[in-house]
Amino acid sequence: MPQGFESTETEVYFRMEMQTAFRKRAGTKQNQAARNLMELRRGEQGVLDRIDLPEDDARRLMELGFLPGHTVIPAHSAPGGDPRVFRVDGTEIALRRETARKLILRLE
């Protein structure tokens, strides 16, 4: 039994390593692992690099303050974590998860 346990654990570890490795490799293709807004944890902050959305949505987001070069800080969220409020350019804007994923952060 204990052996069986061990083997599963290694398996899990292995798979996780695979995933990180894969992510890293995928990241290097487009200038290393570029994170999006959803990956920001509370207490962290990031600088916006680009918006991967159709022009209409991107313009609206830019009007609200999500401009390249601006600092974004995650704040409260609705129950379940979606939508989430972000502090940007002196105000707080709520975005749905799928929108926030398309806002890509600059590499530190």
Binding site: L53, D57, R60, L64, V85, E92, I93, A94, L95, T99
Partner: peptide, 8 residues
């Protein structure tokens, strides 16, 4: 699902 952007 449309985008939802709301100022608080």
């Amino acid at each position: 699902r449309s985008s939802f952007m709301l100022e608080m």
